[in-house]
């Protein structure tokens, strides 16, 4: 048996969190599955939890200073269905689990879970999202890319909660998403690739490519992105194999129950190739 806290407001939630160290519980779609036991038996939760999914003040989508700000407890369905949501994020969420789960799951949950296979995280990192963290001590904003530091590990402090996801809206950006799941629907990712870029006068003016489930965290190779930025598209097409190889060398996938390291390496590299083809109009 564990303590379960049901706050009425964010303020109360922060008090519970800071005074008890209770683990944040949004939709519960991971926690309840991971710690389920059997018929007629409570889940074996190893720690107290603070329920957050019902907090209306953390459920919104609005534009602020050129960014889309999403309340951390907005459900995946609501994020996916909203007109302001970038297509890349819509696509990623649309391939997550099944509608029933998306009706409960939240962005904060997907982020806090810190799985390298988190599909929304992969898209958000390609969109250069940052997140707002709150505690009784105050608020801070950190880049999502820096927030997650390992499988299941984040820099969330003992007294903090994720309160908002901030997604910059890039004018004229092009995006590309591919999830290689264990099957065609209601599946977990073997790997995923999210890309967001912009082109001006045949020159790549900006690019971000995030790779999911091929390293301990969702991975962006900033050095490669920096090298590509400013290049003419035909030049990128010429360097296709070389760029694919650099990505291949940068990732460190594992063998697990869903796929193999060798496959993840090869498929990730091939998918980067597909991104480059889309970018340059090749093949």
């Amino acid at each position: 048996m564990v303590d379960v806290y049901h706050p009425k407001t964010l303020e109360e939630a922060l008090q519970f969190r800071s005074s008890t160290g209770a683990v944040p519980f949004s939709g519960g779609t991971d926690i309840m599955v991971r710690y389920r036991t059997s018929h007629g038996v409570l889940p074996d939760l190893p720690w107290p939890i603070v329920l957050l999914g019902h907090l209306k003040e953390l459920q919104y989508l609005r534009l602020r200073k050129g960014s889309l700000c999403i309340g951390a407890e907005t459900t995946l369905t609501d994020v996916m269905d909203h007109e302001l949501t970038p297509p890349l994020l819509k696509q990623a969420i649309g391939l997550m689990a099944a509608p029933a789960l998306r009706n409960l799951g939240t962005l904060a949950g997907n982020i806090g879970n810190a799985s390298p296979a988190g599909d929304a995280v992969c898209a958000l990192i390609a969109l250069d999202a940052s997140i707002e963290l709150a505690s009784p001590r105050g608020r801070r904003v950190v880049s999502l890319d820096l927030f997650i530091v390992g499988p299941g590990r984040t820099i969330l402090a003992e007294d903090e909660l994720i309160t908002e996801i901030i997604v910059p809206i890039g004018e004229g950006h092009i995006s590309w998403y591919k999830k290689v799941g264990t099957r065609r629907a209601n599946a977990l990712s073997k790997l995923s690739v999210s890309a967001d870029w912009a082109v001006d006068d045949n020159v790549l003016t900006h690019v971000r490519i995030a790779l999911g489930a091929v390293a301990p965290v969702v991975l962006r190779c900033r050095d490669i992105e920096d090298d590509m930025t400013g290049m003419k598209l035909p030049e990128i097409a010429l360097q296709r194999e070389d760029l694919m190889n650099r990505y291949k060398c940068s990732i460190t996938p594992i063998d697990d129950q869903r796929s193999s390291a060798a496959y993840r390496k090869q498929a990730a590299s091939n998918l980067v190739g597909a991104v480059l083809d889309e970018m340059t109009g090749g093949r």
Binding site: V33, T182, R184, A185, N186, L188, Q257
Partner: peptide
């Protein structure tokens, strides 16, 4: 797959049967 005599895929999240989209 077996790993030390145990099935590695022991949930319906890892042992994949087809959905209607497959």
């Amino acid at each position: 797959e077996l790993k030390e005599g145990r099935f590695y895929q022991n949930t319906l999240a890892d042992y994949m049967i087809p959905t209607s989209l497959d």
